[in-house]
């Protein structure tokens, strides 16, 4: 009611503000408390994991040495995760990461030989079922590991029908390899990238008339036919391939020394690759055999304890 009469109440009464300084401060405080709690929990978990690191490493390495790749992969991958969260970049951490990769690769091997895969691919391609092959490869083989010993070459100029790209692949860690088995008179080549290659002595040296083989692992990415060159290309996933370094697991995989590639040659190749991969094999004692009561073993175990305490 006003002096002029009854005033109608406005339809839009101003609402109370949602964001007020008090609410803002309260929200910040809640977030701070929640963040601190989250961080503390993480630290607690990390501290607990760090306490288990020694066991994880020991068990993982023991399993790897025993050829139990599944357990080794589980433990070493977990150990690698802890090391990553701890931000460890020392040689021991590098070694565990490398062994973790090796165990994971050995545990996730492709189910059949490459020759069988390629035979299937070639059969389907010739029957005109390219799409069926792509789906089959995607379902059965993509992402599985191959561990291979082969002579690698710097990539030549390659014609790529899909991308239309031509010319030399100039990435220093890129490689190609002839997979020396013709599938229905079609040649087979592998391609991929190996970060350690650039540090491998003699890699790509044109003067090396007898290049040594390289032992490496990688996940299968694609297997496709290039009709222009009548070549099957097996491509390894670029960010997964790595140089193999462990002679014990190499043996467990079934790579036995023979007349052509004896123990010494294998050891020499793996040593060379360890150096290229920056792996110091003496950086960590073998936990599986460390606890034999000797002074050396005790010191190794002590080192391991110290590792876990870090």
């Amino acid at each position: 009611m006003t002096r002029r009469g009854i005033q109608v109440e406005p339809a839009h009464t101003p609402r109370r503000r949602r964001v007020t300084p008090f609410r803002l401060v309260a929200a910040c405080m809640v977030m701070l408390v929640a963040g601190t709690g989250w961080w503390s929990l993480g630290q607690l978990q990390l501290s607990s994991d760090a306490g288990r690191l020694r066991d994880l490493m020991r068990d993982g390495l023991e399993s790897l040495e025993a050829g139990d790749f599944s357990t080794a992969a589980r433990d070493l991958v977990e150990a690698t995760d802890v090391l990553d969260r701890l931000g460890r970049k020392d040689s021991t951490a590098d070694l565990i990461r490398q062994r973790g990769r090796e165990a994971a690769a050995a545990n996730g091997l492709v189910s059949v030989s490459l020759v069988d895969i390629l035979s299937d691919a070639d059969r389907l391609q010739r029957s005109g079922a390219d799409g069926a092959w792509a789906r089959q490869f995607q379902r059965d083989h993509r992402g599985h590991w191959v561990i291979m010993q082969s002579v690698l070459e710097r990539p030549g100029e390659r014609l790529d029908d899909k991308t239309g790209k031509r010319g030399r692949n100039t990435l220093p860690d890129a490689f190609e390899a002839e997979y020396p088995f013709a599938v229905g008179e079609r040649s087979v080549r592998l391609s991929g990238r190996l970060p350690g290659l650039v540090r491998l002595s003699g890699w790509g040296d044109p003067g090396d008339e007898d290049p040594r083989p390289v032992i490496f692992a990688g996940q299968l990415e694609a297997c496709r036919f290039d009709p222009g060159t009548e070549t099957w290309w097996v491509e390894l996933s670029a960010d997964t391939a790595f140089l193999w370094t462990d002679i014990v697991s190499y043996g467990h995989l079934g790579f036995l020394p023979h007349a052509i590639f004896g123990d010494d040659e294998i050891a020499a190749v793996l040593d060379r690759q360890s150096a290229a991969a920056g792996i110091d094999v003496d950086s960590l004692a073998d936990p599986g055999r460390a606890d034999d009561g000797s002074a050396e073993a005790r010191s190794k175990l002590g080192a391991l304890d110290r590792e876990s305490a870090r």
């Binding site: 020759v115 561990i147 291979m148 790579f255």
Partner: peptide, 18 residues
């Protein structure tokens, strides 16, 4: 003696090409 040997590990077998 072969001139070259390539070896590849699959799940249960080693495939060798001489």
């Amino acid at each position: 003696t072969p001139r070259r040997v390539s070896r590849l590990a699959a799940k249960r077998v080693i495939s060798e090409i001489w």
